[in-house]
């Protein structure tokens, strides 16, 4: 029974963190076929911005966090204008931008390594040391904060996409770019906005991640791969599916970690996704075909 509870507690936390970054990644792909390999670096960047504003600039945490998110949004906008903006009309956009963002990502991560050194930092924005017990399983308040934040943000993104005019334009662009333009949507603005939004979500996810473990320049690599795994499972571009798939992956990883051993969690989900890709390339909930180009 305790095993079960442990899996649920830890799986939901992982799922909450993955969902934020995966939803952003999926939105960006869905809107303009950009597989953003720098997503993980932005995750890390967001987490470091908290340190920068808090430690170096002496802000209170309640100010540092929103400032970090604003910086992440700006990073997303800059990313758009240095990469996608120039490449949108050229051939092989989807593969070229993937390589370009691999380059940007490594440059950014090594830049962080250079600036902050390889030693881990403790994320100041954390309540990890305070916890309560449920059936002898300790649950830290930090987990509650993560669940609540993820829930609020996901509901917020959902409302934005389904109820607001600009959110509808984002969905319309993802479903048919030409038609959206015919409706008067300035699609490039949509791209910038989506990348900024995705970067904010990534930053929140990065802050959460670092609050549960620690802050390191290269910490974005694994969560990026996990976010990719999630959106592949959901079917590329399926935003709602990404949410469910994130929770599924979180629970699966937690189950393997608790039942088999901590080091097998990641290989297990990698094998799972490879099998899914071979068996159902359009994803678990995929309706669309893989041949999108």
């Amino acid at each position: 029974m305790n095993f079960f509870l442990q899996i649920i507690v830890s799986g939901l936390t992982l799922g909450a963190m993955y969902s934020l970054s995966a939803v952003g990644l999926s939105l960006v792909w869905g809107s303009f076929n950009m597989l953003n390999m720098a997503h993980g670096a932005i995750m890390t960047l967001g987490a470091y911005f908290v340190i920068i504003w808090f430690d170096s600039m002496g802000m209170t945490l309640w100010l540092a966090a929103p400032f970090a998110l604003i910086c992440a949004a700006i990073a997303g906008v800059i990313l758009y204008f240095i990469s996608a903006h120039w490449m949108l009309t050229k051939r092989a956009f989807d593969t070229n931008i993937m390589i370009a963002t691999i380059g940007i990502s490594i440059a950014l991560q090594t830049g962080l390594l250079k600036a902050f050194g390889g030693e881990p930092y403790a994320q100041p924005l954390s309540l990890r040391s305070y916890s309560f017990m449920v059936n002898d399983v300790p649950v830290s308040y930090q987990r509650l904060v993560i669940w609540a934040t993820a829930l609020i943000l996901m509901v917020g993104v959902g409302i934005f996409l389904s109820r607001t005019n600009f959110g509808r334009a984002v969905r319309a662009t993802a479903q048919n770019r030409d038609a959206a333009q015919l409706m008067g949507v300035r699609v490039r603005r949509v791209y910038v906005a989506v990348l900024a939004l995705a970067s904010v979500l990534a930053a929140v996810s990065g802050i959460m991640l670092s609050s549960m473990k620690e802050l390191m320049p290269l910490m974005g690599g694994e969560p990026l791969l996990k976010a990719f795994i999630v959106i592949i499972l959901a079917g590329l571009g399926n935003v709602t599916g990404a949410l469910y798939a994130a929770i599924l992956v979180g629970l699966l990883e937690a189950a393997v970690q608790v039942l088999v051993g901590a080091q097998y969690g990641f290989p297990a989900i990698l094998i799972f996704v490879i099998l899914v890709l071979i068996w159902k390339p359009a994803g678990l909930f995929g309706r669309r075909t893989v041949a999108r180009q």
């Binding site: 005019n165 479903q175 048919n176 959206a180």
Partner: peptide, 21 residues
């Protein structure tokens, strides 16, 4: 347009709302 170019995963009323974007 030819082939309608609707937004397939949006409701009819949301498609109409997009018309009045």
């Amino acid at each position: 347009p030819q082939g309608d170019m609707l937004f397939p995963d949006m409701s009819v009323v949301d498609n109409l709302r997009m018309g009045a974007f």
